[in-house]
Nucleic acid binder design. Structure first.
Length: 885
RNA sequence: GGGCUCGUAGCUCAGUUGGUUAGAGCGCUUCCUUGACACGGAAGAGGUCGGAUGUUCGAGUCAUCUCGAGCCCACCA
């Protein structure tokens, strides 16, 4: 049982990580027995390396997955990556720019080749990283959204939806990013509050002396105005109904239209209408059959239609238009105005609303069943309040623009005919046009929104549209663990498309985790420069410590503040386990105990040693049982912080601080004959198993050492049984007795501390035990003496400094220190304690004397209060006795 | 404009369905280099739970209002 002196996780973590993969322990088999548990990874983008948010997500998933696997479930965790269309294309374009190249120069084919090369590289490093972090997924089932199989699924879904009329192509107003040169969906536009202006412009009303004042935040768009709207009920303007206005700068006459869109209470009550550059105006234009004059193009430059302003950038044009309006005395007012400006999520360029021909998914029919499955509980959100957010979005859902003018992604399976100009949509490239038979077909150049393929992930990865064994076994998946930032982008789309394509929800439960933040609660981001690289801290503190520090902060519904201090303390815990193991292993060797692993699967009672098992064994087995109960429940409910805290407390403050301390005494006394190794090793081994999902590396390392040479066991701790709570293993009596023993030891330490005695001074004392404590009696006296640092005799009252409880009197004979006033600290302590006791006692008495309380409170509440009151009173009496009051 | 979350010890946070001297980690004070561990051990100090009102026998835990912080959604020119 060799064990290195220092805990150095770097030495063994990479080895186990690789071994787990090499041995294929986590390869799922649909034919295996056990309850099914399946989960697909939220595929990381192949844009770069994984960050702390991924590590948190993967750690929570891994804990859950390892736990299910150890419980004997038929478990699948399917890994993979997302091609992340626009994001990846941007990364590669940026790299090209560094080489002085751009994608247009390279051409589509060569550009795609470059991105694939990048993808291979990035995908590999993501996989390496995940393996290093201990993720126990099934790499034999790894998928990528652009794989042939998944691409086939994408085409299949596209064709089906098209044929059902749920995908259509049309000319509508879309969000256009002039930098990315593509349309983007509403979700990809982020709104930023900006301090802008409201320009009030006067349009002369033809045939009158009046001028109609309109207000706008974008004066440059007036060049494309094709009407001015007023509210039909607005009395101020009854006189100009049916007239036209003269558009300044352009010298065009445009009609005054009557439309509810004009709010009489806003500004002058008149609105300029620019159908080509504003979504509202676009709709108004349709209602009133207005012409569309596009004055801004896809590059955000003014078009020829902008006449004198043609070729200018939109913001430069704004300045010039304002200046010209001022000069022509059309500008009546400029006021500061706060507005929210839509920007491209990826590059932060101000989005330009433009009319263009795009592909859309009709979402209303898909949203209805997607709402129902959450309402009726077929999909459950944890924490539950996220379902409200989900509903909110689903109720107000709008059609989804799915075409992107990019080169990286799934090419839209639609072919345009050069002869008849009609479209043929097909699963595979058609030879001839479906409408006219012409062979002059060209595939639509656009690709699909990256979320279209991610939306199919839970079933496309399992082989759909083929009816595979995996699909039959593992769909619907059991659980999805992801972040709220992609609730609409991804989760909502998966629900809609899962139900549509499979007729069944894609997962039964969605656990939404928090955000990883830095010490100042700031979001971690590259631009802020506050990112913690998982590989760096993993190397520094060990993966187990980082995992643990993440989990300890992972309370549902809260963000996770991650600091290196936390990782240090988590490492201290790992170090504690390591050293406790050293104690055990070294003494096994010294005592000639051979490696041994218990055959017990679940929590059990200790083996007896004669009449009964030693108190510390009975106690720790009962505590282990309680710990298992709590940890199992906590993981089940995604209360990862609670699972981690429970394990921490059990291992450190019960197993190490008390149990092993007692065992150490047994080791030196009676030549170690009273240790009862089988009990010690059983609880140790079960503790390792309980810890394994949280700290896989450390536990595997120690477990393998413990199991050296043991035949007929699991090959890895990750496939050993997860200990379950066992009603029969509760030992309340042992817990009571142990707590009395702990009370006596603590009392002894208190006295020593209050008397300020040197540790070398062995105090002589007397212990008087009362009925309840009899079983602790003589058998445990040596333990109390050693742990308390006293030399005790039992049973005879004597003079000295006293610490009393209803169970015992501990009397220390220390005439010297008492004479020097050393007992004062003890008196201060007792008086303070009495103050508190008196407070609680009086309030308890008040309640028990109140008929309203005794009449309405449940019996058990009253009982425990009475019981506690009796204990407080007994303690108060003892303290007063000691103080001589 | 609508929706959501948070405000508990110096710091970061727990506190499951309301139930009885309010918990943890880090930090702090004092003592201890005891052959597993100073990444350790022991004993302590320190909150009345943002504020107000209410419901209740009983509220950190529910309701209303209020102050403060943050997030999400939204086509208010």
């Amino acid at each position: 049982m060799e064990i290195e002196k220092v805990y150095e996780p770097q030495r063994f973590e990479p080895r186990w990580a690789q071994w787990w993969i090499d041995r294929g322990f986590y390869t799922a088999n649909p034919k295996n027995p056990g309850r099914m548990f399946s989960l697909v990874i939220p595929p990381p983008n192949v844009t770069g390396i994984l960050h702390m948010g991924h590590m948190l997500e993967h750690t929570e998933i891994d804990v859950t997955v390892r736990w299910h696997r150890m419980k004997g479930d038929n478990t699948l965790w399917l890994p993979g990556t997302d091609h992340a269309g626009i994001a990846t294309q941007m990364v590669v374009e940026r790299k090209l720019a560094e080489e002085g190249l751009d994608r247009r120069k390279l051409g589509r084919e060569e550009f795609e080749r470059r991105i694939w090369a990048w993808k291979e590289e990035s995908g590999d490093s993501i996989k390496r990283q995940m393996i290093r972090l201990g993720t126990s997924c099934d790499w034999s089932r790894e998928r990528f959204t652009l794989d042939e199989g998944l691409s086939r699924a994408v085409r299949e879904v596209f064709v089906r939806l098209y044929e059902k009329g749920l995908i259509y192509r049309g000319e509508y107003m879309v969000n256009w990013c002039p930098r990315c040169q593509t349309a983007i969906s509403d979700l990809e536009v982020v709104h930023e509050e900006t301090n802008g202006h409201l320009w009030h412009i006067a349009y002369p009303v033809n045939g009158t002396d009046e001028r109609l004042v309109v207000a706008t935040t974008r004066p440059e768009t007036m060049l494309g105005d094709t009407a001015v709207a007023i509210n039909p009920k607005d009395a101020r303007y009854f006189g100009i109904h049916g007239k036209t206005v003269r558009l300044p700068l352009m010298d065009r006459d445009i009609p005054i239209i009557l439309d509810e869109m004009a709010d009489p209470l806003f500004g002058s009550g008149a609105v300029k209408v620019t159908p080509a550059h504003d979504p509202n105006d676009f709709e108004a234009g349709r209602r009133h059959n207005l012409p569309l004059i596009q004055v801004i193009d896809g590059n955000a430059k003014m078009t020829a239609a902008a006449l004198a302003y043609a070729g200018l950038d939109r913001f430069e044009a704004r300045k010039r238009v304002v200046k010209a309006l001022q000069e022509g005395e059309y500008l009546v007012k400029i006021e500061p105005h706060q507005l929210s400006v839509g920007k491209c999520q990826r590059c932060k360029t101000v989005v330009e609303p433009l009319v263009s021909k795009q592909w859309f998914v009709k979402t209303k029919p898909l949203a209805e069943p997607a709402i129902r499955v959450v309402e009726d509980g077929r999909i459950q959100f944890v924490p539950d309040n996220w379902s409200k957010t989900y509903f909110e979005w689903m109720y107000n859902i709008r059609d989804w623009c799915i075409s992107r003018q990019l080169w990286w992604g799934h090419r839209i399976p639609a072919w345009h005919c050069a002869m008849c100009a009609k479209i043929t949509v097909a699963r595979e490239a058609p030879a001839v046009c479906r409408h006219c038979g012409s062979a002059e077909l060209a595939q639509d150049p656009d690709v699909l929104d990256t979320w279209f393929s991610s939306g199919l992930w839970p079933f496309s990865t399992l082989g759909w549209p083929d009816q595979t064994e995996d699909l039959a076994k593992y769909y619907p998946t059991s659980l999805l663990i992801t972040g709220f930032d992609i609730l609409f982008f991804w989760v909502a789309r998966m629900v809609m498309l899962g139900i549509e394509c499979m007729g069944e929800v894609p997962f039964h439960q969605v656990y939404i985790h928090g955000l990883v933040r830095d010490a100042d609660k700031q979001k971690m981001s590259k631009t802020r420069g506050n990112v913690i690289d998982p590989l760096v801290v993993t190397e520094k503190y060990g993966t187990d410590a980082v995992r643990l520090s993440l989990l300890l902060g992972a309370a549902p519904g809260t963000d996770i503040v991650l600091t290196e201090e936390r990782m240090e303390s988590a490492r201290a815990f790992a170090n504690k386990i390591w050293n406790a193991s050293r104690l055990i292993f070294m003494n096994m060797e010294r005592s000639g105990v051979s490696p041994w692993i218990t055959a017990e699967r679940d929590c059990c009672l200790p083996e007896k040693d004669g009449e009964t098992a030693p108190l510390e064994d009975r106690w720790i087995f009962s505590r282990l049982n309680r710990c298992a109960e709590q940890v199992n429940r906590a993981v089940e409910q995604h209360r990862y912080h609670e699972a981690a805290q429970t394990l921490w407390h059990f291992v450190w403050h019960e197993f190490c601080d008390w149990y092993l301390e007692v065992k150490k005494l047994r080791l030196v006394e009676n030549s170690g004959a009273d240790v009862h190794w089988r009990n010690l090793l059983t609880v140790y081994e079960m503790a390792l198993r309980l810890l394994h999902p949280v700290m896989p590396f450390l536990t595997e390392e120690l477990w393998q050492r413990l199991a050296t040479g043991v035949v007929d066991r699991a090959e890895t701790i990750s496939l050993a049984n997860y200990p379950q709570f066992n009603e029969a293993a509760v030992d309340a009596q042992a817990e009571d007795e142990m707590s009395i023993l702990q009370g006596i030891v603590t009392a002894a330490r208190e006295l020593k501390s209050d008397l300020k005695v040197d540790k070398k001074t062995i105090l002589v004392g007397t212990l008087v035990l009362r009925e309840k404590a009899v079983t602790v009696g003589a058998a445990q006296l040596a333990v109390i003496e050693k742990l308390g640092g006293l030399k005790l005799t039992l049973g005879t009252q004597a003079a000295g400094v006293v610490r009393s409880s209803p169970e015992f009197d501990l009397i220390v004979q220390a005439p010297d220190v008492v004479a020097e006033g050393g007992g004062d600290a003890q008196k201060v302590r007792l008086r303070k304690e009495n103050e508190q006791l008196e407070k609680v006692i009086s309030s308890s008495n008040r309640q028990l004397g109140d008929e309203k309380f005794t009449g309405r409170a449940p019996a058990h509440v009253i009982d425990t209060l009475r019981q506690k009151l009796a204990e407080y009173e007994a303690q108060l009496r003892k303290n007063k006795e000691v103080l001589g009051e």
